[in-house]
Computed example of a mutant assay.
Amino acid sequence: MAFGSISQPGTDGSDPSTDYTLGERICKARDAVGLSTAQLARRLGIKTSTLQGWESDRSEPRSNKLVLLAGILNVSPTWLLVGRGAAPIHEDEDGANLETVRIALDRIHNQAQALVEEIERLRQRIDGDVS
């Protein structure tokens, strides 16, 4: 079970985010939060040309900047690197992505519920061993 994955799978069951490069994922996430390249670079404390290098796959961010970048873009560092995990949600003016959000929330809720049940089973097992 893949925890936290909310991107839409392709028709063949694959995750289309994994087909993008790091630079393409940075661009998509930046667009999703509505920031320009200059605005994002300013928030990261880097030159616009540095960010442009990342977005065009000429260079890659160091780990500390990658984590900061993920936080600003509201995605996981893993999604930025390899396309796995929570992807950005593009909000259309007409709210067309609400169904995608609902599906993602249902999936996450079910995963959380399964984790709670597993925790309870483990607690009962520990309590049974201690008694």
Rank of each mutant, 00 (worst) to 15 (best):
L80H: 08
L98A: 12
P88K: 10
L51F: 08
L69I: 05
D57P: 06
D15Q: 09
V67T: 06
A29W: 07
H109A: 11
G45M: 03
D94E: 10
R125T: 13
G34C: 11
E60C: 03
E91V: 13
P9L: 13
E24Q: 15
Q52G: 14
R43L: 15
G85P: 05
V101Q: 12
D12I: 03
R25T: 06
L44R: 13
T100C: 02
S56M: 02
L40Q: 14
R125S: 12
A96F: 01
V130P: 00
V75G: 02
I26N: 12
L68T: 04
W79R: 04
G34L: 09
R30N: 11
R43Y: 14
D12G: 06
L51C: 11
I103M: 08
A96T: 12
V116M: 00
I119K: 12
G71Q: 12
N74H: 11
L69H: 00
I119N: 10
H90S: 09
C27W: 00
E93S: 09
G85D: 06
F3R: 12
D106N: 11
S76A: 07
G10Q: 07
A96V: 01
T78K: 09
D106V: 10
P61A: 15
E91M: 05
A2G: 02
A112S: 10
G4A: 12
W79M: 01
R43A: 15
I46G: 05
T78L: 10
M1I: 07
S56C: 08
S49D: 12
T37N: 08
L69Q: 02
L44F: 14
D15I: 00
D106K: 13
S36L: 06
L122D: 14
A32L: 05
S14V: 02
K28C: 04
S49C: 00
G71P: 00
E93G: 14
D31G: 15
H90Q: 09
G4W: 05
T50Y: 04
R58N: 09
L105D: 10
T50L: 03
Y20N: 12
R42Q: 15
G23I: 04
S17M: 05
A38G: 12
G13R: 10
L40P: 09
D94F: 11
Q113D: 07
D57T: 02
Q8K: 11
I6F: 01
P9A: 08
G71Y: 03
S14L: 04
L44K: 15
E117T: 10
K28L: 14
T48E: 15
A87N: 03
S56D: 02
G53R: 05
E120Q: 08
L81G: 04
N97H: 05
D57K: 01
T18P: 00
L122R: 15
G34Q: 10
S76T: 15
R121N: 08
Y20G: 05
D94L: 13
E91C: 07
G83D: 03
L66R: 13
H90I: 12
I103L: 10
S5M: 03
I72C: 07
G95F: 06
E93A: 14
R58I: 03
I89S: 10
N64T: 09
P61I: 03
L40D: 13
I6A: 05
G53C: 01
E117R: 08
E55R: 04
I6S: 14
S63D: 09
